[in-house]
């Protein structure tokens, strides 16, 4: 799957992603793929050597990948976090908020629709790993 959107300046990692259960033994692997049932916390001891984490969405209605992404970013993961699979226009903004910074949709998305959807909401109510100031912070900033 082609990466259609990427919000990073560094060079993409070249390594192929391996599965979570084999990652621990592949001491030179720098890319891993998380499936919905995988526990993202298994990867936490290895964050310093990871350059790419792909989170697979076999069906966009399965929201486990959002928590996986948050958990990695909350633990300080700085590498690329890519949503792959059944990634659609109307999920992009929430995925960005959970720390995804690249997207490889199974079927390419309409560029204009996707950009509009990601830019639509001027503010957020809930703080997440994306660091955007929630509305409550803006309300009380000057106080």
């Amino acid at each position: 799957m082609e990466t259609q959107f990427r919000f990073r300046a560094d060079e993409p990692a070249g390594d192929p992603a391996v599965t979570v259960d084999s990652f621990g033994e592949q001491t030179n692997a720098s890319a891993v793929r998380i499936e919905p049932g995988d526990d993202a916390r298994v990867l936490l001891p290895f964050l310093d050597r990871l350059r790419l984490v792909e989170v697979n969405f076999p069906a966009y209605t399965d929201g486990r990948g959002y928590s996986a992404a948050c958990i990695l970013r909350e633990a300080g993961y700085q590498g690329e976090l890519r949503a792959v699979g059944d990634v659609l226009v109307d999920q992009l903004a929430y995925m960005r908020r959970c720390g995804f910074d690249s997207f490889a949709p199974e079927h390419p998305l309409n560029q204009a629709d996707a950009e509009a959807a990601m830019a639509r909401y001027p503010d957020v109510y809930t703080p997440t790993v994306d660091g955007r100031a929630p509305i409550w912070a803006k309300r009380h900033h000057s106080a």
Partner: peptide
């Protein structure tokens, strides 16, 4: 407010 457009919890089981 917390639950409105909560990005992590919009595709729950």
């Amino acid at each position: 407010q917390w639950s409105t457009f909560h990005p992590e919890f919009s595709y729950l089981p």
